[in-house]
Design a protein around this nucleic acid. Structure first.
Length: 303
RNA sequence: GGACAGGUGCCCGAGUGGCUAAAGGGGGCAGACUGUAAAUCUGCUGGCUUCGGUCUUCGAAGGUUCGAAUCCUUCCCUGUCCA
């Protein structure tokens, strides 16, 4: 089994490229986009269309239903379970822009046993009762090297759960052997654009958002609110968050598209930032249309 | 033509004599990140600097004052209302 990651920021045409590659090399497509996992969030996450799904086998798209949420660890389990059903020589095209999940799949997650709900609840309670300062002190006294910030309550809580449950530091896990790295040969190709083309990119994003709204983004979002899922985490992702605001009359319809375009540009920026630290990705510039070079690399790799 | 209101840094906006290169927010830039990740969090954001400073800045021009974004005069522009 060989894996080709097709990654990069949103709205760069990864899905399309992946389909072309998968058709050419008779491969399967596997999703690694943290919103396309969810059932019912297809429009706003620009999930593949029905026609595309027919062209090539797709996996791990739209398979998690509200109000279930996802974690990187769960994703990895789902991934291996899903591909275990495939023929061992299948070529996989793993498509998406969620850097954290890509890293999780590539390098594996730390082997952490489940943490009991008591401990989780206790940490939450402490945070609510005493504020973050007390927890922060507890963490710093235990692990002076910790980089968790006082205001990052989520990571602060998590670090303390681990401390209280296992009496271990986060860094202890980093140094432990990780057996869960991706056990197949893989190649990472990416679609991106140069900073000079940011405005071109914005236009592209804007058109895409307008199309999403026309295609029913508002109705899609509304159906979740109607079912009482407004606390469901995926609804605070780009596009859905703004649409929820619109549906709650916090912004007007005129403000909706600009608001989503802006957050999408911000998302793109964060994604580019994440990928910056990975020097092994083979990039193509979408405005220079030089994907052929990369396609040749894929060909060589799969040979 | 008349009456109010107002013009502040990329944008919005606070500030009515010194503690103000100017709160706060947005945007932008940089960064962190191992079970929420399209999330969460951090830093920087007038110029120059040998990092001690220094120069320019709150519509424009004058003036008052030891000292002005803040007070006075005139002018320009914007909004609302009355003719």
């Amino acid at each position: 089994m060989k894996c080709v990651f097709v990654i990069g920021p949103t709205a760069t045409g990864k899905s399309q490229l992946a389909i072309e590659l998968a058709e050419k090399h008779s491969g399967h497509i596997v999703n690694i986009d943290s919103v396309q996992f969810f059932k019912g969030l297809e429009i706003g996450s620009a999930a593949p269309l029905v026609d595309d799904l027919k062209k090539v086998p797709h996996h791990l798209f739209s398979y998690v239903a509200a109000p279930t949420e996802m974690t990187a660890g769960q994703y990895i389990r789902d991934f291996y379970q899903q591909i275990s059903k495939l023929k061992p020589n299948t070529n996989l095209f793993i498509v998406g822009g969620t850097g954290f999940y890509i890293q999780a799949l590539e390098k594996g997650m730390f082997n952490l046993p489940e943490i009991s709900n008591e401990i989780k609840q206790q940490v939450l309670d402490d945070l609510g009762k005493h504020g973050p300062e007390k927890l922060y002190l507890e963490l710093k006294n235990f692990d002076a090297e910790s980089v968790v910030h006082l205001n990052d309550h989520y990571r602060l809580g998590r670090a303390l759960e681990i401390k209280r449950a296992f009496n271990k530091k986060m860094s202890d896990f980093q140094s432990e052997n990780n057996k869960d790295a991706l056990p197949f040969p893989y190649l990472k190709i990416g679609l991106n654009f140069s900073t000079d083309d940011k405005e071109k990119m914005r236009t592209r994003v804007k058109n895409r958002i307008q199309q999403m709204i026309k295609n029913g983004l508002i109705e899609e979002t509304k159906s979740f609110l109607d079912c009482g899922f407004d606390q469901w985490a995926p609804l605070s992702s780009v596009g859905y968050l703004e649409t929820v605001q619109y549906l709650k009359n916090e912004i007007t319809l005129e403000q909706l598209e600009p608001a989503i375009t802006l957050s999408t540009m911000q998302l793109i920026k964060k994604q580019r930032n994440w990928f910056k630290r990975d020097p092994t990705i083979l990039w193509s510039d979408i405005f220079q249309s030089d994907t052929r070079v990369v396609e040749n690399e894929v060909e060589k790799f799969l040979k």
